[in-house]
């Protein structure tokens, strides 16, 4: 199926969704309520029966975008399905019942962004250690290891420990009050 034919078929079956096709790829934007139906339709009616990946993007104030990429091996077309969930209560229906392979991908998106996938069989942390606090891939999560520790000795003769010789540049993404001053 060509991208244009796929976009037309998707528009036909999911009237509520926004569908764009640009540079050979088709993107389908759906509401969180229609998430499951859109993916079931993608699998059963648009022939995209190969699950590729799922992930999320932090969009700041606008919440989180959850993205799924699915394929049709027979028709060689692929489809990117997107939806946006709110920042205050990021919850979405799990698609593990439609694509079994979404299991780990949803667990990863859950621990990294805090998106709750309702109906997931086991939404336990996957990559992060037990008891880890926070969601590392959110934009407001500070990448703490980038606050570098000051070299204890002087670089130049006479350079003291108490008075920095030059203006410190903070690495990007580090708040003003962090790190050595």
């Amino acid at each position: 199926m060509t991208p244009e034919a796929l976009a037309a078929a998707a528009r036909d079956r999911l009237p509520g969704a926004r569908c764009e096709s640009a540079s050979g790829s088709v993107t389908l934007e759906v509401s969180p309520a229609g998430w499951r139906d859109a993916l079931r339709c993608a699998r059963d009616e648009l022939d995209c029966d190969f699950f590729d990946w799922l992930t999320a993007v932090d969009e700041g104030e606008r919440g989180f975008t959850v993205v799924v990429h699915v394929y049709s091996l027979a028709g060689r077309h692929h489809l990117l399905v997107r939806t946006q969930v709110s920042r205050s209560s990021p919850a979405l229906a799990s698609v593990t019942g439609i694509y079994r392979g979404a299991d780990w991908h949803e667990r990863e998106a859950h621990e990294m962004f805090g998106v709750v996938f309702d109906g997931h069989p086991n939404l336990a942390p996957l990559l992060l250690p037990e008891g880890f606090d926070g969601h590392p891939l959110r934009k407001d999560f500070v990448l703490a290891p980038r606050v570098d520790k000051e070299w204890p000795g002087g670089r130049e003769p006479g350079e003291g420990e108490d008075r920095p010789a030059r203006r410190r540049l903070r690495p990007p993404g580090i708040p003003e009050e962090w790190g050595p001053r």
């Binding site: 942390p125 996957l126 990559l127 992060l128 250690p129 590392p136 891939l137 999560f141 990448l143 980038r146 690495p171 990007p172 993404g173």
Partner: peptide, 15 residues
């Protein structure tokens, strides 16, 4: 059980 080699490469690349 995975995650023993998680190094946050995706996060680091954003900086």
């Amino acid at each position: 059980v995975i995650g023993y080699l998680h190094t946050g490469i995706e996060k680091n690349m954003e900086f």
